[in-house]
Nucleic acid binder design. Sequence first.
RNA 1: GUGGGUGUAGCUCAGUCGGCUAGAGCACCAGAUUGUGGCUCUGGGGGCCGUGGGUUCAAGUCCCAUCACCCACCCCA
Length: 422
Amino acid sequence: MQIKAPRGTYDILPPDTGRWHYVEKILRETAEIFGYQEVRTPIFEHTELFERGVGTSTDIVTKEMYTFKDKSSRSLTLRPENTASCARALIEHSIYSGILPAKWYYIGPMFRYDRPQTGRYRQFHQFGVEAFGSNNPYLDAEVIILLVEVLKRLGLNDYELHINSVGCPQCRELYRQKLIAYITPVKDKLCSDCQTRYEQNPLRVLDCKEDTCHRAIAGYPTLLEHLCHDCARHYAAVKEALKASHIDFQHDDNLVRGLDYYTNTAFEIHIPGIGAQSAVGGGGRYNGLVAECGGPDLPGIGFAMGIERLLLAVDTVAGREINAGNTDVFISIMNDAYEPQALELLTRLRLAGIRAEKDYMGRSGRAQMKYADKLGARLAIIIGEEEIAQGFYTLRDMQSKEQVQISDQDIINSVKHRLAIA
RNA sequence: GUGGGUGUAGCUCAGUCGGCUAGAGCACCAGAUUGUGGCUCUGGGGGCCGUGGGUUCAAGUCCCAUCACCCACCCCA
């Protein structure tokens, strides 16, 4: 039986890797312009970190983690997300006693044992940013502006940004009580999923898609009306800042993000038309996280984006195609006796910083030209009997088909010159 | 974890009621054009028909199982 990539994983091969580089470059550049620096944390961590950081009631922790024991019986887990690791690193290296806010970004693979689907994999890639140490609402806005800017730079102008505030532990608990009181009389009318949500996390009943549930709880009290004074002011400032920055968004009472660590601002960004998994990014404020992981009481805000979903969107919505040629110059020899000279010149071109290639399959002269064409070469250098006898190279422009004779000492500069103006 | 769909060449897919040596297009290689690419034409290499079992004189085709992928639920990025 042939061995294949495990379920939910896949290979990224050329020329696809070029598309990844293109997206990754935009992500890194944008983050750095906004003042975020890259962090790289381990791919696996102690299981306890995610249990505490993500929350034991979440789907991620209860059923989606890749957990294993190492040879010393430590329980380790392949990271399902990177925010908890960032908080751990921040604490471990006492970053909080340095210059604040600490503004980090990351990019890399995450792992969740989930049923694969369009835009959903078991090993997938996230880009994300985290800003620790400030509870300033304008930092919330900065992070959202960065998220939107990334989409704009990828040509994804058609997005839906939803925001909400989930308050602080105090006002959220008060609201939870009210909501439970509101739902309890109509509990029996809810779908079976909502029956369990009602027990575990009543707020999640709000974003159920079932019509019957919507009707059953119609007129429910909203989080927005129950925010405490500070939380309400914080949320108002975020919205005001987004408006001032001309960012379109919509308040969404039903946006209740699943992870336990969120406080105050929560947001999610969708791109219509890429399937059921249309959330390309989501995040929020997590003021309780650092303390929960054993550090000081330090606020934080961040988001994560799914790179597979971004690529899906770039393909299906933005319709962008990125394919640069493999090479610029191809050396064609008309007799295999010229292999040594060809390789010598090839290396000289390469050491001069020029992407150059030759044939290694024993192709005929004609086939070498076909090959050059497939590689996207803009220039071909032809070495045949006449060239060897008289000591020059034939330089062919693949587009115009013009050919000129160039001496050995001029060849590098001539190639450079032609590539620069082409 | 639940429901539905699909597995045939590297890719996209035909393959009738179970019946001769399993096909096409694209891609790849070669030739036409022995010193020159894109177009065209000709030829060639490539298949455990996802895997395992069953029914049958006979299975790519029917049945069962299994695995994988796709779509949706769930959840999320």
